[in-house]
């Protein structure tokens, strides 16, 4: 049977359009970061400047607080991602495997937390964190981000655990493992795609979070990268070139992170566990 070329072509074209649409802002980011200041406004709208420069990158690295922001962001996002993933693995497993009396209420409460606009919570959280000395500190941010991300991550992990046959840990327990050892040695390795997805999701969420970072942190020492970007906005002008250069560099860890975990994101490790 010969398939008509037209639907295939239309399909590819649609995908191409989507890719262009999705990547264009990133391209623009890169383009502006490489455009010398004197050409930024003088050349009009062009797809590529007539002359490129790395001066913005050099300035951002040498004369701004960007390295500090960057380090803070890595610490905050990394700690949040790890803490959330550990907690969500355990709670997701519990929701997936056990029935207990308060399960219904716990799930309901976790859903409830997802329904509030975050802006509403800024003031109460600030009030709670101040006496604890957690404002203006990276620890405070990690705590807040962890609290916000755990419910969603729990549901995410639960769905991955639901996909793993219960017979596997039963077999492990009969083989002589405790439930925790069965969880660690049998179930967790099979949930690696889920763990990778959760890590990636939480990492990027924390990496780009602005609202709480802005409200809870003042001063450059504990500022994360999204807050730091705002320092390129001064009273009378915006340093677009430097801001974009900082933005491009901030993309690198997120991109690297996904490069590292994408193997697990696409790999179906459970194949062959049960009859398929």
């Amino acid at each position: 049977m010969r398939r008509s070329i037209l639907p295939v072509f239309a399909h590819r074209l649609a995908i191409l359009c989507y890719i262009v649409f999705a990547l264009f802002p990133l391209f623009w980011l890169l383009k502006v970061s490489l455009t010398p200041n004197d050409l930024l406004y003088s050349e009009g709208v062009r797809m590529w400047p007539s002359r490129t420069t790395f001066e913005h990158y050099a300035f951002v690295l040498q004369h701004s607080a960007f390295p500090v922001f960057f380090k803070n962001s890595v610490i905050v996002s990394g700690s949040t991602a790890i803490a959330v993933t550990i907690i969500a693995s355990l709670s997701g497993y519990a929701l997936s495997r056990f029935t207990f009396r308060t399960k219904y209420w716990i799930v309901g409460l976790m859903l409830l937390t997802q329904m509030f606009p975050l802006v509403m919570l800024v003031a109460p959280i600030f009030k709670i964190l101040t006496p604890l000395g957690l404002t203006n500190s990276l620890t405070g941010l990690v705590v807040v981000y962890t609290a916000f991300n755990v419910p969603f991550a729990t549901f995410l992990m639960q769905s991955f655990f639901d996909g793993i046959p219960k017979d596997l840990e039963k077999a492990a327990m009969i083989d002589g493992a405790t439930r925790f050892i069965a969880f660690r040695q049998i179930i967790l390795p099979l949930t690696l795609p889920g763990i990778a997805a959760t890590l990636g999701f939480v990492f990027t969420a924390a990496w780009s979070e602005l609202l709480f970072a802005l409200m809870l942190i003042n001063g450059n020492n504990a500022a994360t990268f999204p807050v730091g970007l705002l320092t390129f906005v001064s009273k009378f002008s915006v340093d677009f070139g430097q801001m974009m250069a900082a933005g491009v560099m901030a993309l690198i860890p997120a991109a690297l992170f996904f490069l590292l975990i994408q193997r697990y994101l696409v790999q179906g490790l459970t194949a062959g566990a049960v009859k398929g």
Binding site: D167, L168, K170, A171, L190, A273, K275
Partner: peptide
């Protein structure tokens, strides 16, 4: 007694082999 302490072996319909 926990399954691990009963000293039994079980063969499941789904085989339940550890895929990794």
């Amino acid at each position: 007694r926990h399954p691990k302490d009963r000293d039994i072996a079980m063969v499941f319909q789904s085989y339940a082999l550890y895929p990794h």
